[in-house]
Design a protein around this nucleic acid. Structure first.
Lengths: 333, 333
DNA sequence: GAAATGAACGCAACCGTTTTTAAGCAAAAG
DNA sequence: CTTTTGCTTAAAAACGGTTGCGTTCATTTC
């Protein structure tokens, strides 16, 4: 009795036209006489008809849905990207299926497959680490994919990011110029290209240009979390570092708070530059100087790129590098 | 040439069975002879067959997808809920379509409709304000809906939250006991039931029990943002308040930082209790005392409730009230 | 006035599953 | 030895649209 879903067929009958015609007016196909269009529209309105997107997806092979793989929505860095993604997605009439992966490659592959099973028209992947498993799935997938905020050494898929080498070099240089000779680099696993290749390289370049020797003991690998930062600071201190460039904002706040709690003055005795310029950098006291990646834009541009790919438009460049800045606040002199 | 999607039909042919049989093994239907099951499985593996979820959705009228309407993923409060939702969703084999609404009722209705068009099996709504528009859509929807972290005065749909009256009363009482007679209440719009009804009531009750008069000038409506907090503090100070209970963590951090920047000592001269116990409360210095709503759990329980509803199991109670605590940190004496 | 043109619209074949119905068949029962 | 019973499996009808192709019919064109 309540199963009553009204279909395109009901509308057709009621309006005395074929379902093809109804389909045309629903889809804005111009080949419909204004009078019939009007009539159909009225019936649609009267019956409160709502096209079934699943049926439509099956018939047209398009779901107007894209999959988004995110390490953790709870992380400001990624959620900022996600917001950019969703905004331009809705702008282009797409919806987002959001799946948390915890950067667990097994989960990622899993999720990727259910996303593909759901026939998403495209896919956006976020995550620092592109495991071989996932890379393999990428390459045999016919579905357009773009990476947001991560780098892909072999450019199989689209991607949007900033020049991490240059960014870290600039940040490191700034720290050196302000007087530190012992600048620490605190990032996630060096096994991840973004850290082990790009950030590390930028760091070394800055050192080299300043005529400073590279000292491995000033490079720290850490989890990206507040508590990790809290726990890591003593080691940083022991290393003799007087400044640090940090790969994640939560981590940086942890370091900062640990410093403060230990009575170390920031920026007088210890300077910090963090990497993501999330709201956290403003909320900290002292506020954190940060590399300013345009997070929202990275997401937005990634989604825009994806729409082009889904639309089979031709792309000028598969990988887009956005500009960055360094926003100076109170954690540097 | 590569359009080659392999369907259930291909598998059936290759395995010399009907598609019905393939469907059975894919869906774990027991009525299949082990031998044939094995054969089919082999063919599936060999052909790398992946069932088309869209077709499945059309035929079964189930999409194993739920819609999630969220004000803003970028907000820690909501993203924490979202994380809980997603985790139990995947636990029950559902995916999440995430849509940001900015608490804009027009956008909400819009999004709700496209979600329903996509035949989601259920819906989770987050947001402080349940506009009449959206409430109306709720009531005529046949799709199960549950609210996460918000209250619904007329309990049309499921919902999961905490006892906001009691929570605010407890917080206010604590502030009064520690010596403040002028406790401010800083929340979002009082037009929203959660503020105007529940929080305000808890606040008044605490006052009454302590024999203090209710003073309207100590109640502040504000946007939930860091900058709003920064801007609001001077007014708070002018009001003579020596403590505040704040409805949102970002807002609270803003207030805290403004106090600090103004040379007001927290908690000596001004105490703060905030409401959501997000990570921010730990990151602030001094750390913020907070009502401890189990954010993740609210999301998780909401999703669990939704699975039951989608499954047509009978529910003991449509609205579930989780327990809360007050986690004392450094912003209270 | 007949033929050609083109706009509107209807027909019907998919899209890839699920699911109901029934058939086939071997073992158990009578 | 025939009938009943109970598994397996096949066939085919949905599910609600999209879309290529063909048809209809009012206009133009010659």
């Amino acid at each position: 009795m309540e199963k009553q879903t009204i279909t395109i067929y009901d509308v057709a009958r009621e309006a005395n036209v074929s379902m093809a015609t109804v389909s045309r007016v629903v889809n804005g196909n111009p080949n419909v006489k204004p009078a019939t269009r009007k009539k159909v529209l009225e019936v649609i309105d009267k019956l409160d008809y709502r096209p079934n997107a699943v049926a439509r997806g099956l018939a047209s092979k398009k779901t107007t849905t894209v999959g988004v793989i995110i390490p953790d929505v709870t992380n400001m860095f990624f959620s900022s990207l996600a917001r950019g993604i969703d905004d331009v997605a809705t702008m282009y009439k797409y919806n987002i299926i959001l799946a948390n992966s915890d950067e667990n490659s097994q989960k990622e592959v899993q999720v990727l497959n259910t996303l593909l099973a759901k026939q998403v028209d495209g896919l956006i992947y976020m995550g620092n680490d592109i495991s071989d498993n996932i890379r393999q799935e990428f390459s045999r997938s016919k579905t357009p994919i773009v990476l947001a905020g991560s780098v892909d050494p072999d450019e199989q898929v689209g991607s949007v990011n900033i020049d991490y080498v240059a960014a870290v070099e600039a940040a490191t240089t700034q720290l050196i110029k302000s007087g530190s000779t012992q600048v620490a680099l605190v990032t996630g696993s060096l096994a991840q290209p973004i850290n082990g290749q790009y950030r590390l390289q930028g760091y070394k370049q800055a050192l080299a240009k300043a005529g400073l020797a590279y000292d491995e003991s000033l490079v720290f690998e850490s989890e990206y979390s507040y508590h990790a930062g809290l726990a890591l600071f003593p080691q940083l201190q022991k290393s003799g570092a007087t400044a640090a460039i940090v790969g994640d904002d939560e981590l940086a706040v942890g370091l900062l708070d640990a410093a403060l709690d230990a009575g170390v003055k920031v920026p007088e005795d210890f300077e910090i530059i963090t990497s993501n310029n999330t709201k956290l950098t403003e909320m900290a006291r002292p506020q954190l100087t940060s590399i300013d990646q345009p997070l929202y834009d990275i997401g937005a541009v990634a989604m825009r790129l994806l729409t082009k790919m889904m639309n089979k438009e031709d792309i000028d460049a598969k990988t887009i590098r956005l500009g960055f800045d360094i926003t100076t606040r109170q954690s540097t002199k």
